[in-house]
């Protein structure tokens, strides 16, 4: 029992160590890749696969979040006669938390799974060794473009999710729940600050990086065979999901502290 626990700990600490080294190597590779314009086509290919093709699912996610929030919150607010303030509630929730987090989770499933499966298959069919054998650093060739694409595009995808969330909430509130549109927007405009929107989008940068790094790492270290690839995908998704939630918590704490520090200076800005 104790022995098992010990082994488990050692394994996970080892894994964490290897992941850190992988992360450091990726970081170096990313800087180098950004420095070399001839590698940009690789990044654009990945941007297309990762970003452009994720737009519909992310938009759908955002829209439904906004719509459901409207339905669920309406009853509570209406009983207090505050239904015109529905807009603040929906828009703050969408822009600050639900839009970024759910869009990231959606991406973890869609992009993370695909990256792990792709790199995992390349690993077990020795394609990664082949890249190495030809004197190319596989992290630079395979990981860096994917991480860069994810880093750059996740914030944009979050903008899409936010936008559709706001529209979905508005549509349900105004057309289905018959709230006055003018009041809806007025209260929203007062309640939601630029700070909320921009930090929500900023989070996307980190979520995207975490998703790509974890998925690529799991692909690179995946075990032999179809089962190995399958397990790697599962582990990658769970890893991404937990990291997103954890990062989100860290962000909440840090951003709150920053906000409070700069609150008195706000009129100066």
């Amino acid at each position: 029992m104790i022995e098992e626990l010990g082994q488990w700990t050692i394994r996970n600490v080892n894994d964490l160590g290897r992941f850190s080294r992988f992360g450091a190597a990726s970081f170096a590779a990313i800087l180098r890749t950004l420095w070399l314009p001839r590698t940009y086509p690789l990044i654009f290919t990945q941007m297309n696969a990762i970003g452009v093709q994720s737009v519909p699912v992310v938009m759908a996610t955002g829209a439904f979040v906004g719509m459901i929030l409207a339905i669920q919150a309406y009853g509570q607010l209406a009983s207090m006669g505050l239904e015109e303030r529905l807009g603040v509630l929906i828009n703050i929730a969408v822009v600050k938390e639900l839009g970024p987090v759910l869009a990231a989770v959606m991406l973890a499933g869609r992009v993370g799974g695909a990256l792990t499966a792709e790199l995992g298959t390349m690993n077990v069919t020795e394609q990664i060794s082949a890249v190495q054998s030809m004197g190319t650093n596989p992290i630079r060739y395979l990981v860096a473009p994917r991480v860069i694409a994810c880093l750059l595009l996740t914030p944009f995808l979050i903008i899409f999710a936010d936008l559709l969330g706001i529209l979905g909430g508005w549509a349900v509130s105004v057309f289905q729940l018959r709230i006055n549109a003018g009041a809806y927007w007025n209260y929203s405009a007062i309640g939601v600050e630029m700070w909320d929107i921009s930090t929500g989008i900023l989070k996307g940068f980190f979520f995207g990086g975490a998703i790509a790094l974890i998925s690529c790492y799991k692909g690179f270290t995946c075990r032999e065979g179809a089962q190995g690839v399958g397990e790697a995908c599962t582990e990658a998704f769970v890893g991404c999901f937990i990291s997103i939630l954890f990062l989100n918590y860290v962000f909440a704490v840090v951003l709150d502290a920053i906000y409070k520090t700069f609150w008195p200076l706000r009129p100066l800005l």
Partner: peptide, 13 residues
Amino acid sequence: FGFCFQGSALFDS
């Protein structure tokens, strides 16, 4: 070096 893998290891993409 040139290395020719037993399982070919061509890039399938």
